[in-house]
Design a protein around this nucleic acid. Structure first.
Length: 496
RNA sequence: GCCCCAUUCGUCUAGUGGCCUAGGACGUAGCCCUCUCAAGGCUAAAACAGGGGUUCGAGUCCCCUAUGGGGCACCA
């Protein structure tokens, strides 16, 4: 039998990084076995569904390269793949459970249940539905129904014994049935809860393995019992460790929008990672390393490389914080493998937004210098700040000399450099570099170009931190470079 | 309160009873390189939560405690 897995998000928010990890692991597992990966939308909570969430989920998955074989947009043999379009099916099977004594109608109102819970809390009693309608006689049920009282359908959990939830990652998990309660299967509005819809869909969609977040462990016994009631085999379960918030306590929530101690922003939604300038393959690599490891002490790899190695049982069961600093590192590694043109094109939109006008040739010239300095695309902006005259740091005579290039050497060096850059043809990286190095070696006491290049770099870029001198000159252009040099020459003259 | 899950350097992890003097990576620090900042190279500090067992031998198995997390919804 071929492996079939699913990712089943509810469209109550945009795709979350934790959800993406779950999707990714399912996808890797499916690829490993040459099976199918199904996308199913669980929109049974009408109130919480957000317009646009489903599109965002699909866009984000596609961006990550997680493709599905069956789903709402591509169809498949077991559709529809949106639960709100399958309501009749759930109702039919809820009725079957009712008819076969595995479920019952509960007429308790929301207020009534709130009161019950408040009482339980106040008296330190076990929390949860007290089964007040489980044994209501049939004629009484009929009477309440005839009155038009709204009701839900609840599952009749076994009252004693144990239920075992086998989990590939953690081994068998055993629950005492007297700890479990009768959860709702079908809500008063006729929509199913997760528990019912999930079991029915997984069964009819022939899902073989379920990999889901570990917050589902506690409802696992319910699901096992529902499968038993139907007389169906349940899929193989694997509960993935939760993703914790890096700063505070608790799990990383969709709303987490803070900064962690070191000042790095906590990105949560996939689209935020995208917008912040991360490469999809870096994000995928990063996520694959959280809760699973490649082995052989390797951190960097592609899905093609991890798929043959990906085994469900190797997943680490411990909860985890996302190591964001590794994402920055990985991103810079991947950035470094991009060719000049591709990187220049990727940078373009960020530069346009910031109002930097740089022609493509100049940009391609400086890209190799930028490359090792970037962790993400937007980092380029701070290295190109030298283009902006308003950002120029104040220039003093001290900036123009060096102990290996005192004033009497510096002044002629600057003057010659000015003449050189004014007349050099072509105004290109290699020619400028060659001439300036030669000039630099003649101008210093130690015959090394270093001191000369350093002082010029500051005089021309007017930034303590900038890209290397020659690339900066090219991007700045001849006129602008000469203009900056004139300011330096003026300082020399004032000092005379 | 009850139930369930987890616990190796700051963080992500390797480790499935002897190969562990606990390995790698990020981050941090230092050095080298160097026109600044990076990148790159080298080096360093840094962990088996605690206590009991089992065993010739325990990071690895069992129990207890502690801590963290999850659940106890007509949310998923």
């Amino acid at each position: 039998m071929s492996v079939r897995v699913r990712f089943a998000p509810s469209p109550t928010g945009y795709l979350h990084i934790g959800g993406a990890r779950t999707a990714l692991f399912n996808w890797l597992f499916a690829q490993h076995h040459g099976g199918q990966f199904i996308l199913r939308i669980e929109d049974t909570d009408q109130k919480r569904t957000i317009p646009g969430a489903m599109d965002d989920i699909m866009d984000s998955l596609r961006w990550l390269g997680i493709t599905w074989d069956e789903g709402p947009d591509v169809g498949g043999d077991y559709g529809p793949y949106i639960q709100s379009e399958r309501v009749e099916l759930y109702q039919k099977w809820a009725q079957w459970l009712l008819d076969n004594g595995h479920a019952y109608k509960c007429f308790a109102t929301a207020e009534e249940l709130d009161k019950m819970r408040a009482y339980q809390k106040a008296n330190n009693l076990p929390l949860g539905y007290d089964r007040r309608y489980r044994d209501t006689p049939a004629d009484e049920v009929a009477r309440l129904e005839a009155e038009g009282r709204p009701y839900v359908i609840r599952f009749k959990m076994p009252l004693d014994g144990q239920t075992v939830l086998p989990d590939v990652i953690r081994g068998d998990i055993t629950f005492d049935n007297d700890q479990l309660n009768d959860l709702v299967l079908l809500k008063a509005d006729g929509f199913p809860t997760y528990h019912l819809a999930n079991v029915i869909d997984d069964h009819f969609m022939k899902i073989t393995h379920i990999m889901r977040a570990d917050e589902w462990i506690n409802t696992g016994p319910l699901h096992v019992n529902i499968y038993n009631a139907f007389g169906w085999d349940h899929p193989v379960y694997a509960h993935l460790p939760v993703v914790l918030s890096p700063s505070g306590k608790g799990k990383l929530s969709k709303r987490d929008q803070a900064f962690q101690e070191d000042g790095q922003q906590i990105l949560v939604q996939v689209k935020e990672f995208r917008k912040a300038g991360f490469l999809n393959k870096a994000v995928v690599n990063f996520l694959t390393n959280v809760g699973w490891s490649f082995g052989d002490d390797r951190e960097q790899f592609t899905p093609e490389e991890s798929i043959p190695r990906f085994k469900m049982a190797d997943i680490n069961p411990a909860p985890t914080k996302l190591p964001y600093s590794k994402l920055f590192w990985l991103n810079s590694q991947y950035l470094n493998t991009m060719d000049e043109t591709a990187l220049a094109q990727a940078l373009r939109p960020y530069l346009d937004d910031a109002g930097y006008e740089i022609n493509m040739d100049a940009l391609i010239t400086i890209v190799p210098a930028l490359k090792p300095r970037l962790k993400t695309f937007p980092d380029a902006l701070e290295f190109l700040q030298f283009l902006d005259d308003d950002a120029a740091e104040p220039l003093t005579i001290d900036h123009l000399q060096h102990k290996k290039m005192p004033l009497e050497n510096a002044k002629p060096a600057f003057e010659q450099t000015y003449e050189l850059l004014k007349t050099i043809e072509p105004f290109a990286l290699d020619t400028i570099q060659e001439k300036m190095f030669a000039l630099g070696e003649q101008s210093t006491l130690n015959s090394k170009a270093g001191p000369y290049l350093g002082t010029l770099r500051f005089a021309i870029t007017r930034q303590k931190v900038s890209p290397p001198l020659f690339e900066s000159i090219i991007v700045l252009g001849r006129a602008h470079t000469l203009n900056r040099l004139e300011q330096a020459l003026a300082l020399f003259n004032e000092t005379d």
